[in-house]
């Protein structure tokens, strides 16, 4: 099991953004808002509607999503060990901007051709 304890190598940051609860709430809100209306949620909706067994679909979808979050976290930690923390923060910043733009573009697209 890859160790998931906080990594000593990353220089100590101010405590706010690294305290357990604040990271948890930041992640929860970001991921939850990004997921609403996301294709995976719509697929879950459709699968549960047509299968008539919402519980099974919910189970399958939840396990899949937990596994994919786990893959995401492990990938993030692995990248953090390879790329120097400063460069990684810079790259992560760009990625988050890219993701923000992507969501923004999708939102504008659906607004325009509504």
């Amino acid at each position: 099991m890859p160790n998931l304890e906080p990594d000593k190598k990353i220089p100590p940051e101010n405590s706010v953004d690294n305290d357990f609860v604040s990271v948890l709430t930041i992640t929860f809100t970001t991921v939850f808002l990004a997921e609403l209306g996301d294709k995976t949620q719509i697929a879950t909706l459709l699968l549960s509607a047509q299968s008539g067994k919402p519980l099974v679909v919910f189970l399958g979808a939840s396990i899949a999503l937990i596994c994919s979050s786990f893959v995401g976290v492990v990938l993030g930690r692995w990248l953090a060990t390879i790329i120097s923390p400063i460069k990684f923060k810079y790259m992560a910043g760009i990625t988050m901007i890219g993701v923000g733009l992507w969501i923004g573009i999708q939102a504008c697209e659906s607004l325009i051709n509504q």
């Binding site: 998931l4 906080p6 990594d7 990353i10 940051e13 953004d17 690294n18 305290d19 357990f20 990271v23 948890l24 930041i26 992640t27 970001t30 991921v31 990004a34 997921e35 996301d38 995976t40 994919s68 979050s69 893959v71 995401g72 976290v73 492990v74 990938l75 993030g76 930690r77 990248l79 953090a80 923390p85 990684f88 923060k89 992560a92 990625t95 988050m96 993701v99 992507w102 969501i103």
Partner: peptide, 16 residues
Amino acid sequence: KTQIATVSLSGTSKRP
């Protein structure tokens, strides 16, 4: 995109 956000968040925070 949600997984990409998770990757960035887990990489930059000390609380994976």
